[in-house]
Amino acid sequence: MTAPLTLPESFALTFRGYDREQVDERLEELVAEIRLLTADRDAAVAEAGHLARQLEQARADHAELTARTDRLCRTPADPAAVGDRVRHLLELAHGEAEEVVAAARDQAAAIVREAEEAARQRTADARAQAYRIVDDARRRADRLAEIGRRTADRLRRIDAFLADAEGVLEEQAPLRAVA
């Protein structure tokens, strides 16, 4: 820890100088802040040292474990190099491992078959639904087209009726003027 800055206890008063109390209060605030910052820095330095020691220990542990793993991996258990009892245990372990692998393969194949069947069923369901949607859309389009044809036919009849009505009104207009 470094010593905090030494600041003068007070300033000399001068003509047109600063207010002594304000300067003293500000200096006290600054000294308190410097003390806090110094304490924070010292705590951070201590924590960094602690973390560095932990890192070095972790690196040493890692190196030891890596060396141990390498040693174990380089010397696999050879059934011929061990006793009959250990050899029998190794053979049993290999047999059991083969059974576990075979069972896992069978289970994986069953899962794949189920997934493929589910995918086929979903595809068939989606296709059927798409056909239903298309058929519904065609029926609606046909109904709308029929409604459009009927509406157009009614409009033509209404136009013809209106044209006839206008013709009758035009013929009757001169008769009214005479009467």
Score class of each variant (00 low, 15 high):
residue 36 L to G: 06
residue 105 R to Q: 05
residue 178 V to G: 09
residue 90 L to W: 01
residue 22 Q to V: 12
residue 108 A to E: 09
residue 110 A to F: 06
residue 148 G to D: 03
residue 46 A to Y: 04
residue 22 Q to N: 07
residue 49 G to C: 02
residue 24 D to S: 08
residue 23 V to R: 00
residue 91 E to D: 07
residue 110 A to W: 06
residue 72 L to F: 03
residue 170 E to Y: 15
residue 147 I to N: 10
residue 122 R to K: 09
residue 169 L to R: 15
residue 123 T to Q: 15
residue 76 P to I: 01
residue 4 P to A: 04
residue 172 Q to S: 15
residue 102 A to P: 00
residue 143 R to K: 13
residue 147 I to P: 00
residue 28 E to S: 10
residue 58 A to W: 08
residue 11 F to N: 11
residue 121 Q to E: 09
residue 114 E to Y: 10
residue 9 E to C: 08
residue 12 A to G: 02
residue 62 H to Q: 10
residue 85 R to I: 03
residue 72 L to K: 02
residue 111 I to F: 10
residue 157 R to T: 08
residue 87 R to E: 00
residue 175 L to P: 03
residue 142 D to W: 13
residue 76 P to Q: 01
residue 124 A to T: 03
residue 112 V to C: 13
residue 32 A to M: 07
residue 29 E to Q: 14
residue 98 E to G: 01
residue 35 R to F: 06
residue 152 A to T: 08
residue 63 A to D: 00
residue 156 R to C: 10
residue 23 V to A: 00
residue 28 E to Y: 09
residue 173 A to V: 15
residue 133 I to Q: 15
residue 14 T to N: 12
residue 65 L to Q: 09
residue 40 D to E: 13
residue 144 L to W: 07
residue 119 A to E: 06
residue 132 R to T: 09
residue 130 A to T: 05
residue 114 E to W: 10
residue 45 V to Y: 03
residue 75 T to A: 07
residue 105 R to L: 04
residue 75 T to R: 04
residue 132 R to N: 12
residue 56 E to N: 03
residue 81 A to F: 03
residue 167 G to M: 10
residue 58 A to S: 10
residue 155 L to S: 15
residue 80 A to W: 02
residue 21 E to F: 12
residue 42 D to Y: 02
residue 18 Y to V: 11
residue 23 V to I: 02
residue 64 E to I: 02
residue 90 L to I: 01
residue 59 R to Y: 02
residue 77 A to R: 08
residue 168 V to G: 05
residue 147 I to R: 13
residue 87 R to I: 03
residue 159 D to M: 04
residue 163 A to S: 05
residue 139 R to H: 14
residue 38 T to C: 14
residue 144 L to S: 08
residue 125 D to H: 10
residue 63 A to K: 01
residue 76 P to W: 00
residue 168 V to H: 06
residue 133 I to W: 14
residue 93 A to S: 12
residue 99 E to Y: 10
residue 39 A to Y: 02
